[in-house]
Design a protein around this nucleic acid. Structure first.
Lengths: 337, 337
DNA sequence: CTGTTAGCGCATTCAG
DNA sequence: CTGAATGCGCTAACAG
């Protein structure tokens, strides 16, 4: 309600001085400063972020773009990540706009910039080869991809090392005598899902473990698809003795199906997930999984973006973080055919 | 990058005409309009929302305030709700800022308004008697509480009918012969949790069913607290033969604990949850629960808020929606002591 | 039907 | 150390 000129009048200074006080300009006599401060308090003045944004050409808000909002939000993992992003933004005084990548304006991601709604974006769940990223890069709009990867020159990426996750589990299971190891993929239009599958195929091959199309089930991240994955693997002869699910959600669906079909886990089949969502400690058996360094991921994304918005054309960052295994009760030793 | 004057120059009109075209003012010659349109396309012009906001005194963004962001986001139910809110906002051309209620600016909710960051707020997970709501109401800042309730004159509320949910379940369980029915509450600083407990106590009394302090376990919405709830009830003599959990998350923790202690559900104990999260169809046994009309809740909140931001001082709305039971496998008949 | 003037609230630049 | 002028990009109110 009150503006700088209102404060200025009350404090008997020009509104310019008020502006200086508000922005902590050191060259204001401390006496004047105090007078202005008091006027500010009295009128309950707060700087109008819109006017400031118009002038400074910075909105102090970033966009968090979620590609498949309905889906992605149903993942407890993602929700937590959002929490950590918000938290990491606070010290930088940035706010966060949440937008669904699809619907909004026919999906043109640059619009948020052109309309001056945001200074930068974090994109979650980006599709593989999404053509819209190109436009972001060409315009040099500060962007960071989370849990995805891109070769575009001006797009930074922060991801977990999907390859080492999968390799760890294959080694872990192989060390327990498993050779036929099935794999449940996430939604393969998402790079993250694709990389995990790729890592699986490459490393199974490298280790000389059997592998073929029937050992891969294409899920979509949901418990439901994990359930179906079990049905699929259960029909196979020989049945895989272990299964890697690309996330915990699907692993939980798998567990349910196994229980219904009286296939005991881990005695008859071993199972691992990825994410370490809260629920995974409450399943029967408790799920062995991979904990994502969420907080580190979130702050890396934020710091990278803040850096990119800083002005000077830094080269795009490519940050890869390591996950940490959480060994619980869902894996056993191969018990012979 | 391009502004209205750039377009104006290219189209040989004044920037005012451009403004008219952009805003669909009908009194522009269609020939001129087309010329301007072409210039707009050519330059890739988009209206600067900041400048527009400064002028119109409306930001076209609302704030979604989450009280305990970490916690609340870990609920799949909440995540879905956010999705539906975003969706409901789109036709109104509103964007959504997500902010955590606590940290941000020492928790002053009016700041978002004073800084002109938002035109209105939706508050999720509001604490009981939160003093900060008062300030919102006094300043007549458009606000709606979701899953909470307030008597403040200028604060609208949208909630599900917690009383009918609880009463339904008590009737349902009583009809199956249960008399000792335990209750797991949510975080009681949240009104929603409190109402459910209140409903439980009131209706148990009304129906003449036994009820006492030991039949209530104070949870905090998390699976972990559901787990502990089982431990508590399992010690009681006589043990309750049925338990109502205030959300599915806790019910799932309860299930896990029961399994570990070889107490069969539903044979030895019945259990119900609230929310109908996806996972609840994948537990063993599948959980009987209450489906929230999420989409209706979300659009009611959005429409109410849009209305309140419309200008004319409408009275605050108080909307109460009904949930719908989802009967699955977690309840049985009382089998004698 | 179109153009001119003014101002939204602030910060940058330059004077004093 | 403080003030005056100018403009960010847009729209509302009035002229023509």
């Amino acid at each position: 309600m009150a503006s700088q000129s209102d404060v200025a009048k009350l404090a008997n200074v020009s509104f310019m001085t008020v502006s200086r006080v508000v922005n902590g300009d050191p060259r204001v006599k401390s006496e004047t400063r105090e007078r202005v401060q008091r006027a500010i308090e009295e009128l309950g003045y707060y700087p109008n972020s819109i006017a400031r944004a118009l002038n400074r050409q910075r909105t102090m808000t970033i966009g968090l773009i979620l590609q498949k909002l309905d889906f992605v939000l149903s993942e407890p993992y993602i929700s937590h990540l959002i929490y950590h992003i918000e938290k990491a933004l606070i010290p930088h005084d940035y706010d966060m706009l949440i937008v669904s990548g699809e619907r909004r304006n026919g999906g043109d991601l640059t619009l948020l910039f052109k309309q001056k709604k945001v200074d930068g974006v974090i994109i979650l769940g980006s599709q593989i080869g999404d053509p819209r990223l190109q436009a972001l890069s060409e315009n040099r709009y500060p962007s960071v991809l989370l849990h995805a990867h891109s070769d575009l020159p001006c797009i930074s990426c922060v991801d977990v090392n999907n390859y080492s996750i999968i390799e760890y589990f294959i080694d872990y299971l192989a060390a327990r005598g498993h050779r036929r190891i099935g794999f449940i993929s996430g939604d393969l239009s998402v790079l993250n899902a694709y990389q995990r599958l790729d890592a699986y195929e490459a490393y199974m091959m490298k280790r000389g473990l059997p592998f073929g199309k029937e050992l891969v089930f294409r899920g979509n991240w949901s418990s439901g698809s994990g359930f179906e994955a079990f049905l699929h693997f259960n029909e196979l002869r020989p049945r895989p003795s272990a299964v890697i699910a690309s996330n915990d959600h699907m692993a939980i669906g798998f567990l349910k199906a196994a229980y219904e079909h009286q296939v005991r886990i881990p005695e008859e089949m071993s199972l691992v997930g990825i994410d370490d969502i809260e629920m995974s400690a409450f399943t029967t058996p408790k799920l062995t999984t991979m904990r994502q360094p969420m907080q580190t991921i979130a702050s890396a994304a934020v710091e990278t973006l803040i850096g990119a918005m800083g002005g000077k054309d830094k080269p795009a960052a490519r940050i890869v973080l390591e996950a940490e295994p959480v060994i619980r009760d869902s894996c056993g030793f191969f018990s012979g055919a």
